[in-house]
Nucleic acid binder design. Structure first.
Lengths: 216, 216, 216, 216
DNA sequence: GATGAATGAGAATTCATTCAT
DNA sequence: GATGAATGAATTCTCATTCAT
């Protein structure tokens, strides 16, 4: 039926507009920050009418939350398949961590703008989004704790308050991300950075003389 | 002379007003965030006229920057005396770190609101303040690096990319602070948290079986 | 010919759509009032596209005027046959009035929504509709005056300024309608209300001891 | 103290501005109707800045409600002293009614614009104001009923459903007011109109041959 | 110097209306 | 002819800033 085809085409047109708005918003939010962006910036950037924005989103916060959810889904889905096999020794643990971090970093690199928004801006919008971000961090920490507890139990991780330590790990990660996004850490060789950070996380400042890749 | 007395009184009154504005701004910024605070919130809170605000500060950003500087000075002055003697072994390094952290935490606890503003809000105001915060973090990282390099040289710290690692340490600290301010880490026993985090920083996830306080 | 058939079908479809829009508009105007209704309310209610509305009506006011005319025609046509025979005594006058009112009430009950719109909303749209409503009231008053003048002449109504009095009667009627629509007068027994009001109109507050149905 | 004087002057200035806005709003609402008035009409008319309006009133509805309350208070206060002595016979009842009506009319004439708004516009703003108006009408009807019940008891008014009849009386009054404001009833001699309407209310269409001023 | 009323520029938002499909 | 996405003019509303007292 014609009406069905029409509906599809309309839907496609609208989705395209919506997507254009989202892309533009992402770019501008990352550039100028959430608070310094006004709706008409986005509208102008997308080349649509002011009303079109409000047809698609309730307000600035709404499109922002959409962006947030977009990244959240990407990150979570990337970890949905991870929990399959638990590491059986320190080395496997280390390798698994590196793999996880690399996967994360790929997503981060592919969504640099989103991540910047995510980490810097979202917590200053309002309490609701602030909590959303915190809950997300907590989920990460819980995942880290799951692996850490396992490692402690199996004896290849130091006995410790795994709650605090896993939160430390996640915080460490977010911080470095933030520094990298903020330009404090210059890009250089990402792999080197990962190795350094992993070594720090596994062996601390003191550690052994030549810990790299060596099982203790 | 009366005029002189008058002038003094005026100045005292003005300073008091200014101080009250600063105190109130601190409280409100911490509560509602920089962007969700309007000048009239501060003015109402301080019980002064709208014009009085503009007599004391150029605009909202100006009073905010004042708050920022307040904390920066407090933190820096607290570290001005620290660099006296360098640790001579792992244990001294550890003890010195704990002392430094505790000193920091005291300042943080005494200025919880300021710290919250500092960490959460300042980077979203504009590029200038963003950089100011980053530079401050870099200074901290440099201080950490100074000690770390010393420890590596002396042989009681693992050889590593001390630039990345010291930034990691600072990031770790800021993150945990953030989590604590955000309520992700419940207050409980701060000393326990410090020990845990220090152990993590010194011995990593793997570490030795019972590292607490034991020199390797 | 197919084209002819097509044209007929199209017309039928269009008429149906138009009618649906009118029905929905009636309902929504009555519910939310003219000013608090937006075109898209009507369009959504009717399940048609926004453009379809403008294909059938010039604008919101246009569809509103259509509703108005609908009721006007109904009311006027209901009175076109009434003026046949004039009452010859007070009792006939009274009976005729009751009949007229009941006929009116039937129309009103059958078109409650329209009447509500008519009485409440129409006068606030613009001067033109305001006048239209007033002219309609005047026509009613003239009709009432015609009967009243006749009754005065024949001697079974009190000599009075029939212009003012007939306007009073019409006003009374509209007011009670309004109160009923507004819920000030609860529905109870409509016949009772009619009798009471007719008695009030015929005999006033003072009247005779037991005027009901009794010719003075 | 200087501050006290200042406060007084400020208050006076603000009140003057507020009052100017109210006066202008009254005029414009009466002219163009509530719905066809925009805030900037009022602002321009009052010669103040747009912000000044919002300093004094929440929105258009708010200033409108203020106008409404203004009239309500005027009308109610005019009746607060009325309930003193109850009429002892038909003639006193009639005289009291005439006095009441005249008092009302004086207020109405002095607040023609307000009354027009009151009767025509208020019920179309929203449910809340609609109810407010209805409740006001009910209060009037209750007052009328109080006198009517007394008259029936004393035997100088016809036994009737005083609830319906008093509502009829109030409705009659409001209607005529409306007609007069709408220009359906030309102003001529107000006293004549009052006499006619009172006669109609007391003696109905039928009444006695020469009821004016004569006690039955 | 302090005040707070007034301001108006600019941002958000709505909604009647158009128009490509 | 029907549709509903897109539009932007018009309106509301906010809030930093000024300025008369």
């Amino acid at each position: 039926m014609i009406t069905e085809l029409r509906r599809l085409k309309n839907r496609a047109r609208r989705d395209a507009t919506r997507q254009r708005l989202i892309e533009v918003a992402k770019k501008i939010f990352a550039e100028k920050g959430y608070h310094n962006t006004i709706v008409s910036d986005i509208v102008k950037g997308a080349g649509v009418g002011q009303g079109t924005f409000y047809r698609n989103f309730k307000d600035k916060r709404d499109i922002f939350e959409n962006l947030l959810n977009e990244l959240t889904e990407k990150l979570l889905s990337s970890f949905s398949d991870m929990s399959s096999e638990l590491p059986q020794n320190s080395n496997e643990y280390r390798e698994a961590s590196i793999r996880a971090i690399k996967r994360m970093i790929n997503i981060v690199v592919a969504n640099k703008e989103l991540v910047k928004i995510y980490i810097k801006e979202a917590i200053t919008v309002d309490k609701e989004l602030e909590n959303k971000i915190y809950e997300f961090q907590i989920r990460f920490a819980q995942l880290a704790k799951y692996y850490l507890d396992h490692a402690i139990e199996k004896g290849f991780a130091r006995r410790c308050n795994s709650d605090i330590v896993s939160k430390s790990i996640v915080g460490l990660g977010f911080s470095l991300l933030n520094m990298w996004l903020g330009g404090i850490i210059k890009e250089e060789d990402v792999d080197d950075i990962i190795t350094e950070v992993i070594d720090f996380a596994f062996f601390g400042l003191v550690g052994s003389v030549n810990p790299k890749g060596v099982e203790l």
